[in-house]
């Protein structure tokens, strides 16, 4: 074999040199990528904020929670105590009646009856709690409510005598949450309360007839969604949270 034939040609040498260069550059690139990855990991570990979104898909309750309504226990028309304890597990509408004019009471109770009829039409069980001055509660209370809600289930209505300190607590909560505009609207506020005693909405029924429809729609949502604030694992075709739980042939079980 001649020496010239064992020696690689110039073309081969160049090709081999290029291959080594390419391999070297690739190795450097891999090393660089690994360094960057390590740096990113270190930064993520040290970082206080979330860089990646959580994988769990949450469906929030469509009706916001404004906090827990202060517990209460007030006297009804018969002098019996009634309050949060008896209402646990049930959603209800809480109506404050202002003390000024009887005509405004009438107006509010009329609108409240419309809310009740709207919910009844959709077969949504709801309680109505009217908190009035003791004079109203004693003299006119249930009679007036009955007059308006004629034909409806009396068991769903409770007329209770107001308690100043509890009312002040509620009004402070509404003011703190900027849920009412001024003092006068506070005193005629209609509150939507969920099954766990959470405040889910504040309405002024005297403002417009449309508010009645808004309250009915929100009450329907609360009835279906329950008190759960958000839920993961809902089927994709579910439009909203189902927080109430078991639903069977008999309804809820």
């Amino acid at each position: 074999m001649s020496p010239s034939s064992s020696r690689p040609s110039r073309g081969d040498t160049r090709l081999r040199s290029w291959a080594w260069w390419c391999l070297g550059v690739s190795s450097l690139a891999v090393l660089l990528s690994l360094c960057v990855a390590m740096l990113s990991v270190a930064r993520l570990v040290l970082s206080e904020e979330s860089w990646l979104p959580a994988d769990t898909q949450w469906v929030p309750n469509p009706v916001p929670l404004h906090g827990q309504l202060p517990r209460f226990e007030l006297r009804d028309m018969d002098g019996a105590l009634f309050g949060t304890r008896q209402l646990r597990g049930r959603a209800y509408v809480l109506q404050f009646l202002p003390e000024e004019r009887a005509s405004s009471h009438q107006h509010l109770v009329t609108r409240l009856s419309r809310v009740e009829r709207g919910l009844e039409a959709e077969r949504i069980p709801f309680r109505f709690v009217v908190v009035a001055r003791p004079s109203f509660a004693r003299v006119e209370g249930l009679a007036r409510v009955e007059g308006e809600a004629s034909g409806s289930d009396r068991m769903s209505w409770h007329v209770l005598a107001a308690d100043t300190s509890w009312e002040a607590e509620v009004l402070a909560m509404l003011s703190a949450g900027a849920l009412v505009k001024g003092d006068s609207s506070q005193r005629r506020s209609t509150l939507l309360v969920d099954q766990a005693g959470g405040l889910r909405g504040v309405y002024d029924l005297t403002e417009s007839p449309r508010v009645v429809d808004v309250l009915v729609a929100d009450a329907r949502q609360v009835s279906e969604s329950g008190p759960v604030p958000a839920l993961a694992g809902l089927p994709m075709d579910h439009p909203h949270v189902l927080g109430v739980g078991c639903v069977g042939e008999r309804g809820r079980y």
């Binding site: 949450w58 993961a232 694992g233």
Partner: peptide, 19 residues
């Protein structure tokens, strides 16, 4: 930190495991 629906075939239980 979370409420999970686990009674049907949705991915609630898997999400719960991961979390």
């Amino acid at each position: 930190r979370g409420y999970y629906r686990v009674v049907d075939d949705s991915d609630g239980l898997e999400s719960l495991q991961r979390d």
